[in-house]
């Protein structure tokens, strides 16, 4: 089945999806649209939004739906009911942090960055680190021994937080080690090298 992911030429909401596909060696067309082409495409999208995953005849939008769809197909949704719910919970928690991050990036970067780094980030990262200890002390993956879709989302979130504030993880050794370990996965590592060379922007407005 042919697979195509349509998104802007930025990391944004699509990057965890790309990381999942790359890591699992799923062939896909990484279709990146320019701002100009987007004006034409937007009215054709289900909710006027991207990312969109085209899988055969199916057209799936909303990153939370795309990730879960791929998770079900590629065995990244936990092996037990308890794991599956935990993975969802973890994912939703990171999304909450990401919406706070996006709020600063897109609405108040200049005056909001420092308060975010000092007041919000440490509190949110502490919660996530604590939760990561639930399975196997956080020494492997979010759900313990097996990869899940939440791993890709966590990795990308930590990665962009380190861009915003390079020492953000110094007080969170479990998160820091997770990030280091994940970046060493061969497929991820190769992709990250390629991405670094392309200098793909993190967000749509040039702020990071």
């Amino acid at each position: 089945m042919s697979l195509k992911l349509t998104y802007f030429d930025i990391r944004g909401l699509a990057e965890p999806i790309r990381l999942l596909l790359v890591d699992k060696q799923v062939a896909f067309e990484d279709h990146r649209v320019s701002r100009e082409a987007w004006a034409e495409l937007k009215p054709k999208m289900i909710f006027g939004q991207i990312p969109c995953l085209y899988s055969g005849d199916e057209e799936i939008v909303q990153s939370g739906a795309i990730l879960r769809h791929l998770a079900r197909i590629h065995g990244l949704n936990g092996n037990t009911e308890a794991e599956t719910t935990f993975i969802d919970m973890f994912y939703e928690g990171i999304r909450d942090l990401h919406s706070k991050y996006a709020h600063v990036i897109y609405t108040c970067y200049e005056e909001g960055k420092q308060p975010f780094i000092e007041n919000i980030l440490p509190v949110e990262l502490a919660k996530i680190e604590k939760l990561l200890h639930t399975f196997k002390n956080g020494e492997h993956f979010v759900a313990g021994d097996h990869e899940s879709y939440a791993d890709y989302v966590l990795f990308e979130e930590l990665d962009i937080i380190l861009i915003l504030h390079p020492t953000a993880l110094d007080k969170f050794p479990t998160l820091k080690r997770f990030h280091e370990r994940f970046a060493e996965r061969p497929n991820i590592k190769a992709y990250l090298n390629k991405r670094a060379a392309l200098n793909t922007p993190v967000n749509g407005n040039g702020k990071q």
Binding site: I60, Q62, G64, R68, H69, R72
Partner: peptide, 9 residues
Amino acid sequence: AAFIDMVFE
């Protein structure tokens, strides 16, 4: 399931 997730989101 994917459709339901999409509407929910």
